[in-house]
Design a protein around this nucleic acid. Sequence first.
DNA 1: ATTGATAGTCAATATACTTGACTATCAATT
DNA 2: AATTGATAGTCAAGTATATTGACTATCAAT
Lengths: 155, 155
Amino acid sequence: MPDATRSLESISLIALIRTARLTYGRAMRAALVDVGCDDIPSNGMFVIGAIGRDGAPLSEIIRGLGVSKQAAGQLIDTLVLRGYVERDTDPQDRRCLTLKLTERGLDAAAAQGAAIDRLDVDLLTRVGADHIAGTRETLAALIFHNREPQAAAQA
Amino acid sequence: MPDATRSLESISLIALIRTARLTYGRAMRAALVDVGCDDIPSNGMFVIGAIGRDGAPLSEIIRGLGVSKQAAGQLIDTLVLRGYVERDTDPQDRRCLTLKLTERGLDAAAAQGAAIDRLDVDLLTRVGADHIAGTRETLAALIFHNREPQAAAQA
DNA sequence: ATTGATAGTCAATATACTTGACTATCAATT
DNA sequence: AATTGATAGTCAAGTATATTGACTATCAAT
């Protein structure tokens, strides 16, 4: 039931979304391997992408991740251990941790960001800015009208 | 860095896709639990959705799944064990297995399909058919112009 | 008959996630 | 100040899910 020969209407939106995510994931993975970062878990790619240049609160990352805070904690442990991320406690609220990227983390973020950009630019030239803006709106509508108590999307 | 207050342009397409998938996944999960199917692994939801009323070749399911065939094999093992799926060898080619849904599997498929429909219909009334068609095209373009040797999207 | 390829399995191991119980800090009381 | 309730995160143990490598069976083409 797969493939390009099927008519587009017969492929469900959810299937397209699922496969689109795999497409991005594979591209990121390949780019990371090329740059020597072959030890990043799949959800680690999300974390590294979600921590900006200025760092981000762990709690926020956890919410975007969609797993338990314990699982998130372990994931961050391995990212710290492997030299991609560092934890600092927020001086404003000493319960909170802020995540920052190390040098290596920045390299990884750059590599995976470039891979994403390649796909995005390619897509842009192929379907045009209007379609992409429309797609963004559609997905945002889906997400924000069905979101659980305190979750959301990440940059 | 999340939430509805951010401007839409600042949220990357990949993040929206990721979160949209979580949204569908949670809705399906909830619907399945409501109907007594609380023992279906996440990828099992995909499998159950991908096997149609007429059954589907295992090999095809594996390709759509995005994991190794061994992992897929184990997943199917548990779905068989838990009474959702049955395996039959294809008489045309006795290497190949065809997957079919059991009664229980059909119930689960119905429940999760209804959950998906609810989201889809809701989205349709919210953004309109044109936007959804455009979204489909955009995602399909992303997928099919970046697909690895023999993978694709599932219905 | 032989060769090469595809479909799937077996066994062992490594990763990743979950649950339940816990500590620390903060904010709002009294 | 001491108490209460909530939020942020950790610890430890168990379970679930994935990966790798080696294998069997069937088929298609010589």
